[in-house]
């Protein structure tokens, strides 16, 4: 089975969907320029050579415009895969996402569909505050949007294909340190996981999480980069005799609640890790859901390992302080287990 980075897996998914369905096209900034970058992180590299510049459509630097064009094209029968160079730029297009894409089906009484995909790279990577934020909580808060967050190459291909085929707007969050982008667009300090990606057509269903590591003492929920930090923490904890179960929700909306609840009922303890900042965040929602639905199974308070409530700072020493990490997850588990 071919081994691929996440950037390669996403590219393969786009290529297969564009070959399969003439309604599918890409729209974004710097995605198809001949001699260009193939998007900010090389995901669309080479696609304009295969499909032409009409189907790999470079836009002006106009985030409202490109998002609205994706909304309108989707409403009129196309299947756009839009992307934004950095997740932070989603704020520029928020009206088109939150007021238009998300509400059109509802306001029409179910007669209008908006089958669009919006891909967005997130993660703090030494670029300062405006190319770094994780916006999962913002988008998960919008009724009418589906949100996915693939952390492996296998899931990247399968979830993106599922998103393209979904009849609703789907936001795809991708982590900059997981792409495995090569050449000038490679990232310092990247984890860049390479994984097996089947050549054949498959999807990862939207709404299904996965247990990445089984355990019995504590449940750690992590997505994107924090899923890997959770796995690293689980390895450390195992050496101490603490058995951690790691859950990757993969889809954030609709959430696979039962997978998380079943794990917490088994372990009695929950740590939620996220790169988004803490207040009114995604981890807070997971914690509330578990408190409401599995409170009597808990042997300890629920812990959150989130970024602090500041903009992402630039200096590496401050950025490390801001971000979650495997060590911070281990510390959180220790507290729940009565250690330290």
């Amino acid at each position: 089975m071919p081994m691929m980075s996440i950037a390669e897996a996403l590219r393969l998914a786009i290529r297969e969907e564009m070959e399969r369905d003439p309604r599918v096209f890409c729209i974004g900034e710097d995605i198809g320029v001949t001699g260009g970058f193939g998007g900010a992180f090389t995901v669309t590299l080479g696609l304009s050579e295969q499909f032409g510049h009409e189907r790999v459509l470079d836009t002006p630097i106009s985030e409202i415009g490109l998002a609205g064009a994706a909304v309108g094209a989707a409403m009129a029968g196309m299947r756009p895969i839009a992307d934004v160079q950095y997740g932070d730029f989603l704020f520029c297009m928020m009206d088109q996402l939150a007021n238009q894409a998300a509400k059109m089906t509802y306001m029409s009484g179910g007669t209008v569909s908006v089958p669009m995909v919006m891909r967005a790279p997130v993660g703090s990577t030494r670029r300062g505050s405006q190319h770094a934020q994780s916006l999962e909580a913002f988008m998960c808060h919008v009724p009418g949007l589906k949100v996915v967050a693939p952390a492996t190459a296998y899931d990247a291909k399968g979830l993106l294909k599922a998103a393209v085929r979904d009849d609703n707007p789907v936001i795809v969050f991708e982590h900059k340190l997981l792409y495995g982008s090569k050449g000038a667009r490679s990232e310092k300090g990247a984890l860049s996981p390479v994984g097996e990606v089947p050549s054949e057509d498959y999807i990862v269903p939207i709404g299904k999480g996965i247990v990445r590591r089984e355990g019995s003492d504590v449940t750690i929920v992590g997505k994107l980069l924090t899923m890997y930090q959770a796995l690293a923490a689980a390895e450390t904890l195992a050496q101490e005799g603490i058995s951690a179960e790691v859950i990757d929700p993969r889809t954030l909306v609709p959430l696979d609640k039962e997978l998380i609840l079943a794990s917490v009922r088994k372990t009695g303890r929950l740590v939620v890790a996220e790169e988004d900042n803490r207040t009114c965040g995604w981890a807070a929602e997971i914690a509330a859901m578990v408190a409401e639905e599995a409170f009597y199974y808990l042997d300890a308070p629920i812990a959150r390992v989130s970024s602090i409530d500041t903009p992402p700072p630039f200096a590496p020493v401050m950025e490390a302080f801001y971000l979650p990490s495997a060590d911070k997850i281990v510390d959180a588990v220790h507290k729940l287990m009565g250690k330290n």
């Binding site: 096209f25 994706a70 309108g72 094209a73």
Partner: peptide, 14 residues
């Protein structure tokens, strides 16, 4: 306005 552009883009594709 951008939605109209997108619907027109769909008409052009189709």
């Amino acid at each position: 306005a951008p939605i109209a552009a997108g619907m027109a883009l769909a008409c052009k594709f189709q």
